[in-house]
């Protein structure tokens, strides 16, 4: 593999990583400035690469239309591009760009409403999954069901009225086993992330260097 494809990215990656570590562990302003500049670069790269994503989206849609040239597929093909052009031209055509009343109207009345609909679907999917999860099939499921039922009953005002012990028990489940288990898991995940970071700094992360 050539120097440009393997060694150079590793050297750059390690240099940037070491600079970030120095910015974190040392109080010198110079490193903070470098960190700020690198962060700005990432924002620029990210914004520019959106066009790359657009090309991929267009190609995938075009190939799908070629394979399946039905009316429905034509509508699927046209719709995203029509809305893209609509938002793009309204965004750049009116004074104020993305703050213009015209763009805000589109954003509030189309984008946000579609988003709200998708989030609404999430609650149905959660209810459906909860029903399946609470099917008592194993010891783990029984523990999950017991904890879940106690916690849910605690949230309904009627049940704590008849069974006041539900409130401290629900609080205990929330604050002791839940927080304890969660923190343990977060520490383990953070350690694993640190190890991946160190491996990357040393140029030994094969997910990056072998590509």
């Amino acid at each position: 593999m050539s120097f440009a494809r393997r060694e150079l990215p590793t050297i750059l990656l390690t240099a940037c990583g070491v600079l970030m570590l120095l910015a974190f562990f040392t109080p010198f302003d110079a490193f903070q400035t470098v960190k700020g500049t690198l962060t700005t670069w990432t924002i620029v790269i990210s914004a520019t690469s959106t066009w790359l994503g657009f090309i991929y989206m267009g190609y995938a849609q075009y190939r799908m239309l070629q394979r399946n040239p039905t009316l429905a597929q034509k509508i699927y093909f046209i719709t995203p591009f029509a809305f893209f052009l609509l938002f793009f031209f309204v965004g750049v055509s009116f004074p104020g760009d993305l703050s213009s009343p015209q763009y805000n109207w589109l954003f509030q009345n189309i984008y946000r409403q579609v988003g709200a609909t998708i989030y609404a679907i999430m609650f149905f999917t959660l209810a459906s999954a909860a029903y399946r999860t609470f099917t008592v099939a194993s010891i783990e499921a029984i523990a999950l069901l017991t904890g879940g039922v106690i916690y849910m009953l605690r949230q309904i005002p009627l049940f704590p009225y008849f069974a006041p012990w539900l409130v401290p028990l629900g609080e205990w489940i929330l604050l002791v086993p839940n927080v304890g288990g969660g923190r343990g898991a977060v520490i383990c995940a953070a350690l694993a992330a640190l190890v991946v970071g160190l491996r990357t700094l040393w140029g030994r992360e094969i997910t990056l260097v072998e590509v």
Binding site: G53, Y56, M57, A60, R63, M64, P80, G115
Partner: peptide, 14 residues
Amino acid sequence: FRLEDLRYYGQGSL
């Protein structure tokens, strides 16, 4: 490998 099976949906999780 089919390039069109890499799907991109634009910005945002929605």
